[in-house]
């Protein structure tokens, strides 16, 4: 169960003073559900998911996972999530088995249970063939599977996938979506960020469209189609982005205008 309320992350910026990577973002995701976070590059997806995985601290707002706040109880949060991102690579000089075992032991799983669990995970993901191959000599697809095995070895209730299909070929990407689908059936709460619309259409129960640190719209695909009277999801996405840009430009022009009139008045 993921709960995010008015989450904001601001960075100091040399040009504008502060840059808000996330601006009052709120959403929820329930067990047995895949929540999609859709947005172009730089929209703030990675920042949001990094905060959820306690790697970054929010500037303001609340993020809770299974009832644990990410700022006050980061240790508990890390125990109940599995985090797979395009930035969470695997070790080159460790085999798949060693890698997963290492993280399993960091999670504090007892040795006998760990070995049993690893056998199951490796078989589920059909990774037995390359369990003794070092990370450096694996293909991208193999690495991604090892990452997933690493993230689910402790059987967490919440899984976070950040652009997990980035750089994968069609076959592997398809397999990945299959795995995530299975995980949903096991009752996991999954948050899945991507910039590929077809993945959202195929996988997500509910979706939020993130752009420039703000959520433009959220709901099930059907709800969104209803609300914006647009049944082509790609068209819907672009029209939302365009509207947002137009509003922003208008706001900037407004601000400049008021500034110049104020300047003339004083």
């Amino acid at each position: 169960m993921i709960e995010v309320v008015e989450l904001t992350k601001a960075y100091p910026d040399s040009i504008s003073g502060t840059f808000k990577a996330l601006d009052c973002v709120s959403f929820q995701a329930k067990p047995g559900e895949i929540f999609g976070l859709l947005g172009p590059n730089g929209a703030g997806k990675t920042t949001a998911l990094r905060i959820l995985s306690t790697v970054l601290r929010p500037t303001s707002g609340i993020a809770r996972i299974n009832g644990f706040d990410v700022t006050t109880h980061p240790d508990e949060v890390r125990h109940c999530i599995g985090f797979v991102s395009c930035n969470t690579a695997i070790y080159d000089r460790m085999t798949a088995w060693e890698m997963v075992e290492y993280f399993g032991r960091l999670y504090g799983i007892p040795k006998d249970r760990l070995s049993e669990r690893m056998h199951r995970v490796f078989e589920d993901l059909s990774m037995m063939d390359y369990r003794d191959i070092a990370g450096g000599r694996m293909s991208t697809g193999m690495r991604q599977k090892v990452s997933i095995a690493r993230a689910i070895v402790h059987d967490p209730p919440v899984l976070i996938f950040d652009e997990a299909s980035l750089g994968l070929d069609v076959l592997v990407a398809r397999a990945l979506l299959g795995i995530i689908d299975q995980l949903r059936e096991q009752g996991k709460c999954i948050i899945f960020s991507t910039h590929v619309m077809r993945e959202v259409e195929r996988l997500c129960d509910r979706v939020a469209i993130l752009y420039r640190g703000r959520i433009l719209a959220s709901g099930t695909l059907a709800e969104l189609a209803e609300q914006y009277q647009q049944h082509d999801f790609e068209e819907l996405f672009f029209s939302l982005l365009n509207d947002s840009d137009r509003d922003r430009k208008a706001a900037v022009a407004e601000a400049l205008k008021s500034l110049s009139t104020n300047g003339a008045g004083s």
């Binding site: 990094r50 995985s53 306690t54 790697v55 240790d75 890390r78 125990h79 999530i81 985090f83 991102s85 930035n87 969470t88 690579a89 695997i90 070790y91 080159d92 993280f103 960091l106 999670y107 504090g108 990452s147 690493r150």
Partner: peptide
């Protein structure tokens, strides 16, 4: 550089 630090940071290790 290799991207493994974030993996470790999101693990239970403080």
């Amino acid at each position: 550089e290799r991207g493994t630090l974030e993996t470790l940071l999101s693990s239970p290790a403080r």
